[in-house]
């Protein structure tokens, strides 16, 4: 194999694994957007919160991110559930821009609280296995990325199962399809919305835990990830769970390729260009059903 090809393969694999984590993050946003009807403009900020939490767990209890996933997911589920019940629910019936600004305010509060508490310096977890890539013939696979991708994939599969095969999951999907109808047949829509918001937050939490294996953490990451999550959800197709995952992988790979062949700082431009094209020519997204 030529060196060019090996490079290409390495870049694609790395983008693919990162993309699955992106996909899980976007899946959380998609659930919140699609079911709870909330434009969660604080999604990336919640993820940054989870990243700090997992750094703290690591530095105080030596709990490494792979094992911190479970407690972080539980904490974020409760966080999302309570946040929705306490603050967000009254906004469900308000105009979209009102919601948008509420979540924006929450996002600004979260980002700057993190900045005040932890300072602007970058943080990371140092684990031995992050430095030992797996050699597969000529290919090098980063262990952190591999584990992160696998965990994210597992979490996404779990969410699929929950929505597809459990009673609660069916009820959540029903209230997403037609909330008036769901109310008529006696479902507690407010509780189901809060549940969806909690599940979406938990997805963001897990994605955050895994992301700490991939990037250095600064308080400013939140807004960037919020935008990224929206780009992915819209590219993949709103309301489509597979769409969110596929969109994540697509963006992950295109970012990796752009970062390698053009310039690392230019990679965002390709994502936004993709978003603009999709919005204009296929507004329902690549795998979305209807608008």
């Amino acid at each position: 194999m030529s060196l060019d090809f090996v490079n290409l393969a390495n870049v694609v694999i790395s983008g693919l694994l990162t993309g699955i984590v992106y996909g899980l993050m976007a899946l959380g946003l998609s659930v919140i957007f699609g079911v709870a009807r909330i434009v969660n403009f604080a999604h990336g900020e919640m993820m940054a919160l989870a990243m700090y939490l997992s750094v703290l767990l690591f530095s105080t209890f030596h709990l490494e991110p792979l094992f911190a996933v479970a407690p972080v997911a539980v904490i974020f589920f409760i966080f999302g559930y309570v946040l929705h019940g306490a603050v967000i629910h009254p906004f469900v019936t308000r105009p979209e821009h009102s919601q948008f600004i509420l979540l924006l305010a929450l996002a600004i509060i979260m980002t700057n609280s993190l900045l005040i508490l932890f300072g602007p310096d970058a943080r990371a977890v140092s684990l031995d296995y992050l430095l030992e890539p797996i050699e597969l013939g000529p290919l090098l696979i980063d262990r952190g990325k591999l584990y992160a991708g696998l965990v994210a994939f597992g979490a996404a599969a779990g969410l699929f199962t929950l929505f597809r095969f459990t009673h609660t999951g069916t009820a959540v999907r029903a209230s997403a399809d037609n909330w008036l109808g769901a109310k008529v047949v006696g479902l507690d829509v407010k509780r189901l919305y809060a549940l969806a918001f909690g599940l979406g937050s938990a997805c963001g939490g897990i994605a955050g835990c895994m992301m700490i294996l991939l990037v250095d953490l600064t308080p400013g990451l939140g807004p960037a990830y919020t935008l990224l999550a929206f780009v992915i959800v819209i590219v993949g197709g709103l309301g489509s769970m597979t769409g969110a995952l596929a969109g994540g992988v697509l963006i992950g790979v295109s970012e990796a390729l752009a970062g390698f062949y053009v310039a690392p700082s230019a990679k965002g431009m390709f994502s936004f260009a993709l978003l603009i094209l999709v919005l204009l020519f296929r507004p329902r997204g690549l795998l979305g059903n209807k608008l």
Binding site: S98, I101, L102, A105, I108, I109, N112, I116, P219
Partner: peptide
């Protein structure tokens, strides 16, 4: 004087106004 405190207050004001 810590970075971010001004934005934090902005965020809280924005939140209070919208609610």
């Amino acid at each position: 004087e810590v970075p971010g405190i001004k934005q934090l207050i902005y965020g809280i004001v924005l939140f209070a106004v919208i609610v």
